[in-house]
Amino acid sequence: MTNVSATNEKVELRRYLFSLAERSLEQAGWRVERIPGSGKGSVRRIVKNDESHVVSIRTTQDTWIAFPRTSDDNGWVTLDDVDFVIPVTVDDRDDPKWAAVYMVEAKEMRERFDRAYLARKAAGHTVQAGRGVWVSMFSTEDPKIVTSVGGGIAVGKTPLLRVKISGSEEVEDKPASEPMTAATSPLTVAEAKKRLAQTFGVDPEKIKIIIEA
């Protein structure tokens, strides 16, 4: 049976994360506009003086973001049509305390997703058109782990906006004082399970982690 309460919480969190992206852009001096007839709910036009760009806002509640391949398998849906990607991520899937907004050039993002796609194909994975290819915001690439290729999107980047989302009061930290590094990027429980599962060749759901404070 579906946990309706949990589902509603995820929907509300997604809306909140999306609103953080728009807020961070506005605080950076951009005017955020919908694009009539685009048919893509995540796509916005941002304008500052004479500068204008098309961006895709992607929210993630597990620190991974995805773009699907086009039907002809020659590119990426949405990603090929924008100038920047605005990923909004929580710090931990199971117990999120912070959310951060980044602004990444689409060229860099396409290069990351191209590497991820080619690595999966080379490893014999089936990548269906229309299905998302997932890339991690925080986990850096490890040539021994196919699914890590393309990862580390947030590493080395200072977020546009970082907000504490746990508790009853929102606290902003804008921008974060330091860019994310491989050493300081958070290792979530979900990410730890994925890495251990890949190491031992088991399903991530079979991994149990006990943390003692």
Rank of each mutant, 00 (worst) to 15 (best):
H53D: 10
R31G: 12
R31E: 15
H125N: 12
W30Y: 14
H125R: 13
D94C: 10
G132F: 03
L79N: 04
G132L: 08
K48N: 12
T63F: 02
Y102S: 02
R34Y: 12
V135Y: 00
P143M: 11
F113A: 04
A28N: 13
T70R: 14
V43D: 09
I57S: 02
D91G: 06
R120S: 04
S71V: 13
R93V: 05
L118D: 13
K144N: 13
A28R: 05
R112A: 09
T140E: 12
K121A: 05
T126P: 01
A123G: 04
K144W: 11
W64A: 04
Q27I: 11
V47A: 10
G130T: 04
Y102A: 06
Q128W: 14
I35V: 15
K97Y: 05
S56A: 15
A116M: 03
Y102L: 14
G37F: 03
P87Q: 08
R31C: 13
T63C: 08
I35S: 06
R23N: 08
V54H: 09
V77S: 05
K144A: 15
W134I: 02
N49L: 12
R131T: 06
S42I: 07
A106K: 01
D95S: 13
G37K: 11
V82L: 02
D81N: 11
G124F: 01
E51L: 14
S42T: 14
E51C: 10
P36C: 05
E26C: 11
V90I: 11
S71R: 15
A129P: 12
V54Q: 07
D142R: 10
A123E: 06
I86P: 03
H53A: 10
E108G: 02
D72I: 11
N74G: 13
N49W: 11
V32K: 00
A122H: 09
D94Q: 07
E141L: 04
G39C: 10
D91N: 14
E108Y: 02
W98N: 04
D62A: 08
V47L: 12
S136A: 07
M137C: 02
T78Y: 00
S136I: 06
E141S: 06
E26P: 07
D50A: 15
L118E: 15
L79P: 00
N49E: 15
E105C: 06
S136C: 03
T59C: 05
S24D: 03
V88Y: 02
V133M: 02
V90S: 00
D81Q: 12
I35A: 07
E108C: 09
D80F: 05
G75T: 05
K107R: 14
D91R: 04
V104N: 05
K97C: 12
P68F: 07
K48H: 09
A106I: 05
D95N: 15
Y117H: 11
G124P: 00
G75M: 01
V77I: 15
V77N: 10
D81P: 02
E51I: 13
V133P: 00
W134F: 05
V47G: 13
G124T: 06
K97S: 06
D62N: 12
V85W: 00
D114N: 14
D62V: 11
D92G: 00
V43H: 09
G124C: 04
V85N: 08
R45P: 08
H53C: 11
I57N: 06
G130L: 10
